[in-house]
Design a protein around this nucleic acid. Sequence first.
DNA 1: GTGAAAGCGCTAACAC
DNA 2: GTGTTAGCGCTTTCAC
Lengths: 347, 347
Amino acid sequence: MRRAVTIKDVAAEAGVSLQTVSRVINDGPNVRAEVKARVNAAIAKLGYTPSLAARRMGGSRSYLLLALNDRDRTIEGWTSGEGTDWVDQMLMGGMLECARRGYRMIFELVDTHSSHVEREVAGALAALNPDGVILTPPHSDNPLITDLLERRGLPFARIGSQTPGAGFAIAMDDAEAARVAARRLIDLGHRRIGFITGSDEYALSAARLDGYADALKAHGLFDPALVTPGDFSFQSGEAGMTALLALAQPPTAVVASNDQMALAALRVANGRGLSIPQDLSIISFDDTPIVRFSHPPLTAIRQPVAAMTAQAANLLMRAKAGETDLPMGRLVPFSLIERASTGPAPA
Amino acid sequence: MRRAVTIKDVAAEAGVSLQTVSRVINDGPNVRAEVKARVNAAIAKLGYTPSLAARRMGGSRSYLLLALNDRDRTIEGWTSGEGTDWVDQMLMGGMLECARRGYRMIFELVDTHSSHVEREVAGALAALNPDGVILTPPHSDNPLITDLLERRGLPFARIGSQTPGAGFAIAMDDAEAARVAARRLIDLGHRRIGFITGSDEYALSAARLDGYADALKAHGLFDPALVTPGDFSFQSGEAGMTALLALAQPPTAVVASNDQMALAALRVANGRGLSIPQDLSIISFDDTPIVRFSHPPLTAIRQPVAAMTAQAANLLMRAKAGETDLPMGRLVPFSLIERASTGPAPA
DNA sequence: GTGAAAGCGCTAACAC
DNA sequence: GTGTTAGCGCTTTCAC
């Protein structure tokens, strides 16, 4: 069990000082091409890879990005077995982007509701010393967390948040997405279009509602009775759909603020003997894998989670590398995936 | 942006030496209860959390576990949007277990087919210095990887592998699971039971086939024509089911070695006008979220990925902590989840 | 352009 | 039981 190869071994092999090797690794200036080549050859020959821990100790970077997700909601998704595509997409976007620069992304769960969020987060920061933090809803808009990060001067990204303020705000245009969804239904001839909102804890819930309301108002179709509150859970979707169907003039189409609630709406509608999309059209938000397997498969707004996370990671790494003039916010394009849950309004 | 609080600060606050604080943190011996309490008070007061990087540098532990997954298959699952519950369940099981002991799990992708697997893995080991490595299929049985780990004397766990050898072998009893599935179908009166195998690259594929064959042979029902090769992909499932239905005496029930292939079998059967489960019963392996949303929902063997990963993490951490007499293998219980894709054999 | 020295925050080994 | 010393593998700062 031989000792690991260190920067020293490389320096000896290349016949240069330890410091020169460090310069080559870090793409630093002041190394002659010839020396650089020799060092790189030694690195390749010995199969050297710098130790993250040592780099963190010596220098000012840890090559670690910390991604924080809501504990309850994430664990609930995992145990319910309903699939948490969110985490997968974050890993894909974040991990792959990190790998391009020798970074790693560490995934951690934090309890938003807890009174000691700050302590939890501070603990993770102290243990890991990340170069940047990626916040996801609802953490993205939690001042307890964002203020802490700001005070520490630690770069961070707020995914799914469009609020101005410290940290990079990376989001899709939720309002525009809801507008697009509603407009599509209007184009299909629908005049009574219901909306099931997301949880108040998420800023994007309001944005989605606004976009929907906008689109309807533009055509004189808005009616507050068509808006029913949800909290992203299946149960709240059932309740919402039930309430909408109980209206004197029930909707012929519904936009649900996430997939679970859309699936719930589908279930309730089917239970009432309604055919989808003949009697009722449904558009959902997020487009996690499960909506492809419902009957019929749901038309949905695809939330670009992987792309948002990749953007976040990219900006954080560049910020840490000293790059300046980085955009403080980014809107990542979404798309409307038309499947079989939408059709012309009934005659 | 104040300096982080270090072990020194705690030592000063508690009026003891730095080393005593270290002893308290590490639950070491030789600290009087009174001193220990004073140190803990100082830790709480200052909100101290030890730095992982520093612990790694000074000591012999990094408090990091490395989980290695197959690159192609994982990315394919992520991009196809068909849901890779595997990763989620690993995170849930591994991360939560790690957290109990102050560990972190780092998730990494490695290309099994690449000629430089060893270099890839060695690079990750050098960078991270993990205290243990969690291997998943097909890495679990890749000698290029297991030998490397063994040479380094690094504790590792092979998930889904029952092969004896170095490293902890954590698996479910794949043969028994297949036996249970086949027996259930036999109990339902089926006499012609097909089987779609998994990829040869996975040792568990053979185990599942063996269990199935066992059960059928015990009742004199085994017929090699009923076994058709698959590779875990949807396409191979379609091909396999098509082949089975083309038999002179087609099966009235099918066991597929994973969910994708079972879903493919369902699709093909529906295409032929067969009703599930009236004309054909289907049992799948793995029980990822999607099988709950097919029509009908599939009866499936649930693979306890979270539990296996938790076990793996637990054993690795204990091994690193110097615990001895740990079991070299562990069989984690599976279960047969009966849904609507199984029923009595047609008359 | 290159090298030498100091130090990051801890733990291991040993002294007291 | 507790303190002291050395050193982990790097980067930073500064000298040449």
